[in-house]
Design a protein around this nucleic acid. Structure first.
Lengths: 211, 211
DNA sequence: ACCTTCAAAACTGCATACAGTTTTAAAGCA
DNA sequence: TGCTTTAAAACTGTATGCAGTTTTGAAGGT
């Protein structure tokens, strides 16, 4: 239930700023308002929606400043995970990372943006796991989820696919060399560039809508 | 309401493992079960309590492994904040930090553990703010809250007070010199030592109780 | 004395109802 | 025509009741 609504937000079925009124949601999921309310509270705690007293919950639409905060935090967290992964991943994990990364080149060449986006999630998740720290994993996963609505369109830019591959290449290379500093820096730079691409789209999105 | 229960957990009025049944809480706060249920959901999302279907919520009692994760994450976050503070704090902020730090020496000398603990919170919060990043602030604050139940007793060890002051000294010094690397390292070490002191107390706590 | 079984009590999950607030829209007035 | 007022519709916040599940405790058997 919570997950269903969260997915609607993360996958972009609901746009930032959109209202989530309890009665409609209750009808949609064929339950009463009570579980809907609880789900909304949880989503609020997760930062995906915002609530004010006696008003509908709305999909969080962060200010440009806060968006910058989130991307910077994301870069720091990614760097942290890459650094720790470079120290802690097993040989098997490193080899798997390298193999999947190599295979992803085919997706880049064929321009399969959807498939590459799916692989991209797996790639990053492997690095989060490689850090061997559940709490850091939770934080980075949650931050990623909150940024998802603002990062949706990134692979529509045709150059992003190849660019992303090259950046992954640097990260993988540093992790295979067990070079924490280099892995951290490469991961940080990777997010920074995604951030630049995304803010453009966020601005476009705003102009494109009415409310 | 949420804050009231959260405070009970953070201040130690409720011990990890303790059950929070809805009816008692509703009676305690003189409301019905509905708002209590919603508060519990929120606390669950915050990680302060855990819930399973058809069972009472209980104050989160993390495993030793997860506790280690949390302290490591805390060290990384503190280091991050100290590093960014060393880069971004204004002159005024740096001077205030130094001044308050200097004043805290009196508390150490007089052995005022309670007062020093209060000052300690202010000190760290200043560094979190100095990083100029709202999302990082949220993460570090939340992690700190979740660790609070396991860090309660740290200043009871008489040597911890003086030790803490010395560690703060290193952090303040690095921030005043605008040396991000040194600030980060000092902050990281500071948490690591708190972690060592706390796990001892966590273990004691476990032995001391029945359930 | 200890374990098993079963029933009652206690509690959670959800639906519904009602009170209070906000939003909307229509009617009256300038 | 445009602004103000006011009432109704819509929605949120909370209480309460019922169904289903878990827990507790006592009775019976070994």
């Amino acid at each position: 239930m919570v997950r269903a609504v969260a997915d609607m937000i993360i996958t972009g079925a609901m746009v930032p700023g959109e209202k989530l009124d309890e009665i409609s949601l209750a009808a949609k999921f064929a339950v009463s308002r009570t579980p809907v309310r609880e789900a909304l509270r949880e989503l609020c705690a997760m930062g995906l929606v915002e609530r004010e007293p006696n008003r509908s919950a709305v999909v969080t639409n962060v200010s440009e400043l806060h968006l910058h905060s989130m991307f910077e935090a994301m870069a720091e967290l990614e760097a942290m995970c890459a650094r720790l992964s470079a120290e802690r991943m097993t040989i098997a994990e490193r080899q798997l990372l390298q193999r999947e990364h190599y295979d992803s080149l085919a997706l880049v060449r064929s321009g399969a943006a959807e498939d590459y986006a799916a692989y991209n999630t797996v790639f990053h998740t492997r690095i989060y796991r490689g850090a061997r720290n559940d709490h850091i994993f939770d934080m980075v996963t949650q931050t990623r989820a909150r940024l998802a609505p603002f990062r949706r369109a990134q692979f529509r830019l045709p150059t992003r696919l190849a660019r992303s591959y090259e950046e992954h290449d640097e990260i993988v290379d540093a992790i295979l060399r067990a070079d924490p500093m280099a892995a951290g820096q490469a991961a940080y730079a990777h997010v920074t560039i995604v951030s630049d691409a995304s803010t453009v789209f966020a601005a476009h999105d705003k102009l494109g809508r009415k409310n």
